[in-house]
């Protein structure tokens, strides 16, 4: 777990440095309100995609808690 945190922290730092960390003022946030900026996207589609991936690969999860199990994996 420590390794995961270390790797991700480094990556997060690089990512944030890459996008020029500058939290905006309220009147500068118009672009952030676009629906396309939504990370989760369409609920049903995202669930189905993750369901397919998790039934064909060993790796799964990371997108939250509460998803039910399935005999497919």
């Amino acid at each position: 777990m420590q390794r995961i945190i270390c790797i991700t922290y480094t990556a997060a730092s690089l990512a944030l440095a890459g996008c020029a960390w500058a939290p905006p003022q309220p009147w500068e946030k118009g672009a952030l309100a676009k629906p396309a900026m939504t990370m989760g996207g369409d609920t049903l589609s995202q669930r189905f995609d993750q369901h397919v991936y998790s039934s064909k690969e060993n790796a799964s999860g990371g997108y939250g808690v509460g998803g039910g199990g399935c005999g497919c994996n």
């Binding site: 309220p26 946030k29 309100a33 995202q46 995609d49 808690v65 998803g67």
Partner: peptide, 18 residues
């Protein structure tokens, strides 16, 4: 502000009752 709050909310809407 309200819309961006909603954006942050939506950004966290992840599959599987995330």
């Amino acid at each position: 502000e309200s819309r961006v709050g909603s954006v942050l909310a939506a950004a966290l809407l992840l599959p599987g009752v995330a």
